[in-house]
Design a protein around this nucleic acid. Structure first.
Lengths: 168, 168
DNA sequence: ATTAAGTTTCATTAATTTTTGAAAGTTTAA
DNA sequence: TTAAACTTTCAAAAATTAATGAAACTTAAT
């Protein structure tokens, strides 16, 4: 396979995975493109290589910056802005984990905590079932939360060494 | 908070979380409703409680069955079909992990394996960057895959005890 | 065989999400 | 200042995804 074709496939695959996981396809594709670009790219480069509009490119780049996955670079004597992606896969994974935890898991845990407190008649099957499901899911969510917390702080080789050791 | 209100909130929260993770909101809500229902429900019950159409209810229930999250039940002397959700949270988590791994992670690993094999000029920065990103992501994806594999097979208390022990 | 109860399908409609592109806004150098 | 280079915004359009509901289908009891 030619490098050009392989690059294209990578961008597509990353875009597809992104969209299956609630991340807009273009955002994932722009990220993929930057990941395999040795040098920082301009908005124009990105628009051209992915055939997307200026508005779309701009919004997407802003989002990626907010997720801390790419950074703006400036070059002396130039007005243009360049965008560069952090190439450290472990940083990327941690960053994504961090953002999604904050935006999605934490709010749910907050609600589950509240719902765990709801009181009711211990004889009422409807209450019992509700209570058990909520409590159980809450516990699971908290375990996931703690694990993510550790992962976010952890050094990559240590993390996988530890995980894979128990699971060998 | 009243039980009825709490149930409503739970259904909403589960629906929202689902949609953020690429699972259709209605599917997550039907699952939530069944999770907090002590007895199996009919299509009619579900249509009514969530105000959705018969077609939508039917498709959603079929999907949930395919994900192995709910089961059809029949009662002697009755034509109606009843739907009942597995209430074991750990089973649910494993089941979801299993399905998403099969549908989403495995195909990406397959592509990454192919892309890792692409040969190129070791002096070409474009090739070097591509190769490094693909190889690194591939390693990460395989570690995740192994961890999921273990989780899918594991007993809950063992799994969290092991994980949280290293991370305490 | 007929019918009534229940289930499934799928073309159409509705809702949501994403993208466009032109206009407005900013910045910097002359 | 002015104007060129570049960035941002956002209303409208397009694309995608989900939901509806009526008709077709299935099943089982009479």
């Amino acid at each position: 396979m030619e490098l050009a074709e392989a690059r294209q496939k990578f961008i597509e695959a990353w875009g597809k995975l992104g969209s299956e996981w609630g991340i807009n396809r273009t955002m994932a594709q722009v990220h993929a493109l930057l990941l395999i670009s040795p040098d920082a790219l301009t908005t124009e480069d990105i628009m051209e290589q992915l055939s997307i509009s200026r508005g779309n490119a701009n919004m997407t780049l802003r989002d990626l910056i907010n997720w801390n996955l790419i950074e703006k670079q400036h070059r002396p004597g130039e007005r243009k802005e360049y965008f560069y992606a952090d190439k450290d896969t472990w940083n990327i994974a941690r960053q994504v984990a961090k953002e999604r935890r904050k935006r999605e898991l934490d709010p749910v845990i907050k609600i589950l905590d509240e719902l765990s407190k709801v009181k009711g008649d211990a004889k009422n099957p409807e209450f019992k079932t509700f209570n058990k499901s909520v409590t159980d899911i809450n516990k699971l969510a908290k375990n996931v939360d703690k694990t993510l917390e550790t992962m976010i702080k952890a050094d990559e080789s240590w993390f996988w060494k530890s995980i894979l050791k128990i699971f060998k």
